[in-house]
Computed example of a mutant assay.
Amino acid sequence: MEPDLTQLDEYLDEAGVDGYLVDADSEDADQYYLSGFDAPDPFVTLYDGDVRLLFTRSLEYGRAKKEARAETVERGADFGYAEKAQEYGPQEARSRVIAAFLDSHGVGSVATPPRFPLQTADGLREQGIEVTADDSGAVTEVRATKTDEEIEYIREAQRANEAAMARAEELISAAETNADGELVLDGAVLTSERVTEEIEVTLLRHGCALDETIVACGADAADPHDRGSGPLLTDEPIIIDIFPRNKRSRYHADMTRTFCHGDPSEALREWFELTDRAREAAIEAVEPGVETDVVHGAACDVYEDAGLPTLRSDPTTETGFIHSTGHGLGLDVHEMPSVAESGETLQPGHVITIEPGLYDPEVGGVRIEDLLVVTEDGYENLTEYDIELAVA
């Protein structure tokens, strides 16, 4: 994939700097996006109109020359790292090598991502390089608008996500109930941990990985980020939130469904129906040029009209709708734009979640989440999974 970095060029012109510098390993999404290179140890990427890589050590040098999205690939040895390390010590030598690398490309001033190693910044300043923190997150802004290829990566991850969700629903649906109201499958209590394991195994079989997921039942589901633990219970809400990353493309998907084995209470049914209506209202508001606070507001309207609190109506509430309506998604599971009161303008190519929810320990929690891409004339919902509360 060749990203369009025109917006980054404009940022460099406006900031009055010669280049953009990243010092991180490839788990940093900005680093991976700019370099196109996957490495477990930190390396330096310079963007000065072209992408240029520098490796202090030579371990990744040969592979980077073949695989990286870079005009030039250089190493510490090209700038006398060994001699400098002997004279100045390894850290100052690294600073001197990076400074020499920048100087060789006519770069005397750089902007850096908001999260950039302080030691690297201080070391470069000592070598006469002007270092400015980019508080706007210019590369992150560029990443927010996805190419058709990136959207296909996300779509692929979402299909794997749906297979994992189907496996989780299958387990819950097939379970019976013991005298304590716990779900039992194949003679053993069905726990959050067991369902999580099945989700993760299914994702692996579809080329995806996930370190964490949410399978939260009953009162656990009243906390939006409680991972859940222990036995799953009949007649109680079970929130399942899966956000895998495709191991090949590194792009994420995200989806939440709420299930109930048994007989949902009247309150739970009402909450589920309201949340589905809030989801639909927010989705209907999505189109290019719309501010995200309008989308968020559409979900809030549904809840507030039903007499339920939201953070918009009561910023101190601890129950009701207590989070934003969604977030951007791509190389990071949470990225720009935020679908919240803060308000950002939706553009074609933005991939966002729509995930309203209600929470109260007395009822539990309900959340329903779809994944959308903003198109030239509206949106496409990348989620194909049914929305049903009762599964048995």
Rank of each mutant, 00 (worst) to 15 (best):
L54K: 12
E287A: 12
E150P: 05
G207F: 09
T145I: 15
L118I: 11
L203H: 06
G207R: 06
P42Q: 11
E152V: 13
V131G: 03
V51Q: 05
G357T: 09
V351D: 02
L12A: 05
Q7M: 13
G349A: 07
V195L: 10
E388L: 04
Y379S: 04
P309W: 01
F321L: 08
V110Q: 02
L171T: 01
V363Q: 12
F243M: 01
I151E: 14
I151W: 06
A285W: 00
S229A: 15
T112V: 15
G76K: 06
T213M: 01
T56W: 05
V333M: 10
E156T: 15
I199E: 01
G328Y: 05
G137C: 11
L372I: 13
L183T: 08
V131E: 03
A160H: 08
W271A: 01
R248I: 11
D148M: 09
V97E: 02
A15G: 00
G19Q: 10
D48I: 08
G289R: 09
Q91N: 08
E150A: 14
P90I: 08
D103P: 05
T202H: 04
P224F: 09
G137K: 12
V22R: 01
V17I: 04
T112Q: 03
F116A: 02
Y47V: 13
V373L: 10
E280T: 10
E355G: 10
L171Q: 12
Y61D: 07
A281E: 10
V139N: 09
A216V: 08
S173Q: 14
V302P: 02
F243A: 12
L232K: 09
L46A: 08
K66E: 15
